[in-house]
């Protein structure tokens, strides 16, 4: 029997004003990016609480990426600057606990960067696929 390679599940938090529109543009332009990427729209990248990221892993994500407006372009002026500090510290902590660093990423994608959105997702999915299933931050109670 052939066991199909399990496809990774990727959660992408995208801010409403830039990255979500960027994803939309990627779609409008018929650019390909893997269907494993599940987008969650947030009002601003700084809406993402560290708990959201851990929850995503708990509920079966293999990789979590957070996209927001470029620094300086946040719709709320400074939200993404806070995001940047929080995520720098959180990701460094995950790494310190021995969790693979390629499973998390922050990327700035503007509404005009459909191509960057697609390229980022392709690259991220490839990295996470190479790592395989998320074992270190999994919750067996949530496994189907």
């Amino acid at each position: 029997m052939q066991i199909e390679n399990k496809k990774p599940l990727i959660v992408a938090f995208c801010c409403n004003w830039c990255s979500y529109a960027g994803a939309d543009l990627a779609g409008n332009n018929r650019l390909n990016y893997p269907a494993e990427v599940k987008i969650i729209r947030v009002p601003c990248s700084c809406r993402v609480n560290p708990m959201f990221i851990l929850r995503a892993f708990q509920r079966g994500a293999d990789g979590v990426i957070l996209c927001g407006c470029h620094p300086g372009d946040c719709h709320y002026t400074s939200g993404n600057y806070y995001t940047r500090r929080r995520m720098a510290l959180l990701f460094s902590m995950l790494d310190y606990l021995g969790i693979e660093r390629d499973r998390t990423r922050v990327e700035w994608v503007s509404a005009a960067e459909g191509a960057k959105f697609a390229a980022t997702m392709n690259d991220f999915v490839e990295k996470v696929t190479a790592l395989g299933e998320n074992k270190r931050l999994e919750d067996l109670r949530c496994k189907k």
Partner: peptide, 16 residues
């Protein structure tokens, strides 16, 4: 530090 920022803070991936 978490309720503060500068415009040229380190990026998360570099921070790790």
């Amino acid at each position: 530090p978490l309720v503060n920022y500068t415009t040229d803070d380190i990026e998360a991936s570099d921070a790790v």
